[in-house]
Write a protein that binds this DNA or RNA. Structure first.
Length: 427
RNA sequence: GGACAGGUGGCGGAGUGGUUGAACGCGCCGGUCUCGAAAACCGGAAUACCCGCAAGGGUAUCGGGGGUUCGAAUCCCCCCCUGUCCGCCA
């Protein structure tokens, strides 16, 4: 969400930044609605001031027993009532107009975010690890998983339909191991606090992080009106909504291992086989709450934390700086981590780390206050996957596969799998 | 789900129609004292928005939303949440 005052004072900068995202100029329209709102508000408040003054005089008159004067004033101020009520209605309407105009505009890109129309304009920042050479044709994860008898898409389809999977045996345990490994790493090496948040949330929470009102079609909503989270970013970032935090306590760093639910409404036909794109997947999320001064450094730190997961798993990856056209709604700067998948012979997104600046904070009313400061200010929020567990499982399987279809267990995961070094066909 | 009881400032807690934006206590900030600190004492301090170059002025906010009234933290209606008991239940 944008600050109407900022738009009013920097219309050309605002439109120029939007243009970098391929959005046409909107400042004139916003300023028009905002000035209409302020005009109504000024008029309403003047009427309320007159009414309050008269009401006080009535009280004083009654207090000294001057009923004639009280009657006279009451008749006089009675006329203000209709005027005030009409302006109150007008004000409510124009407030909604302002919110409608502002709530669907994406965040302004950071100056360091490259400009471009789509993912082809993303910039590769660095690579890590060398893809392994296979002396056989590497298979995709779903072939491997079905071959192991531990990945069942047909059973999932009978239960839940397309885009679900049932993991069994050691693959189910591997998913749990990955989640535990990531949580352990982030909490012990990077100072994140583990949280176990609700995965059903109110509309307000989704508005706060920017999924609503614009992206309703990507979400599952329950008949009770609650929504399934598409990412733990929603629950965890909203931990600080409507709070004034002590600035000395920042940054807050949270990590959570949760299921995520996405309708994948716009992706029919894409990644239809396998676990890459599911309605439900698990993910370890990283969320940081910082001061404006800290957020850029915290962003780099978060990417490093996510990269460390891949490094410890010894999976090759590259870091991409997303361009304006490929970046999410709430982000002003985003790094994606793309892991190498030998079965697909391609890099695939496995993490996305975004600095949202004060964009989400304004929607959530999340603020902080320094000990000497007079007024609170908006915090900065950052979120990143650390990592998408389902896709990490895919990456481990494809990168660690052997010619006979078995999977070697990465060293760091072996303690989580009872010391087991290989995943074989299970009876 | 049922029955009660509640939701007031950072926290605790007064306040049932007219200078109550809100007593009092704690906490917080500044100062005095001190070598320094503690204690004590003095003083300060809500948030958002609007008007204004500014000084300053104004409006709203006592869970949320409506309503009654010249005037609502106080009265009425709806909703949400919390606590206790009962029922149910992982």
């Amino acid at each position: 969400m944008h600050d109407p005052k900022f738009v009013r004072e920097n219309p050309q900068a605002f439109d120029a930044a939007l243009a970098r995202r391929g959005v046409g100029p909107l400042s004139a329209q916003i300023i028009e609605i905002d000035s209409r709102r302020r005009a109504i508000l000024t008029r309403l408040q003047a009427a309320q001031a007159r009414r309050n003054e008269a009401a006080k005089m009535i009280g004083a008159a009654k207090g000294r027993g001057d009923h004639a004067e009280a009657e006279r004033l009451m008749a006089e101020v009675g006329n203000l009532k209709a005027e005030i009520q009409a302006d109150e209605i007008a004000e409510r309407q124009v407030d909604m107009d302002v919110e409608a105009a502002l709530s669907s505009i994406p965040n302004l890109p950071d100056p360091t975010t490259p400009e471009g129309p789509d993912e082809t304009a993303n910039v590769e920042v660095r690579r890590h690890g060398i893809p392994r050479q296979f002396n056989f044709e590497p298979r995709q994860h779903f072939d491997l998983g079905e071959g192991l008898g531990q990945m069942d898409f047909e059973a999932a389809a009978r239960i839940s339909g397309a885009r679900f999977v049932v993991l069994k045996g050691m693959l189910a345990r591997l998913e749990r191991a990955l989640g535990n490994f990531m949580l352990d790493l982030h909490t012990s090496a990077f100072g994140y606090t583990e949280v176990s948040p609700p995965t059903l949330v109110k509309s307000d929470a989704l508005f706060g992080t920017g999924q609503l009102p614009k992206f309703e079609e990507d979400l599952f909503q329950t008949t009770a009106g609650l929504w399934l989270i598409p990412t733990a970013e929603v629950s965890v970032t909203n931990l600080v909504r409507e709070q004034v935090l002590n600035e000395a306590d920042l940054p807050y760093r949270f990590t959570a291992f949760t299921p995520c639910y996405r309708s994948e409404a716009g992706s029919a036909g894409r990644d239809t086989r396998g676990m890459i794109r599911q309605h439900q997947f698990s993910k370890v999320e990283l969320v940081s709450i910082t001061t404006p001064e800290q957020s850029d450094a915290e962003h780099e730190r978060m990417v490093h934390a996510a990269e460390t997961v891949l490094q410890r798993l010894e999976l090759p990856y590259r870091v991409m700086l997303l361009c304006t056209g490929d970046m999410g709604f709430s982000a002003r700067k985003t790094y994606d981590l793309e892991v190498w998948l030998p079965g697909q012979n391609a890099f695939r997104e496995i993490s996305s780390c975004s600095n949202c600046g004060d964009f989400q904070a304004r929607r959530m009313m999340a603020r902080s206050k320094a000990s000497g400061a007079k007024t609170p200010r908006l915090v900065h929020t950052l979120n990143g996957s650390g990592l998408a567990v389902g896709r990490t499982l895919v990456a481990v399987m494809e990168n660690y596969q052997q010619a006979d279809g078995s999977i070697l267990v990465p060293k760091v995961l072996q303690p989580y799998l009872g010391g087991q070094e290989v995943l074989n066909v299970q009876p």
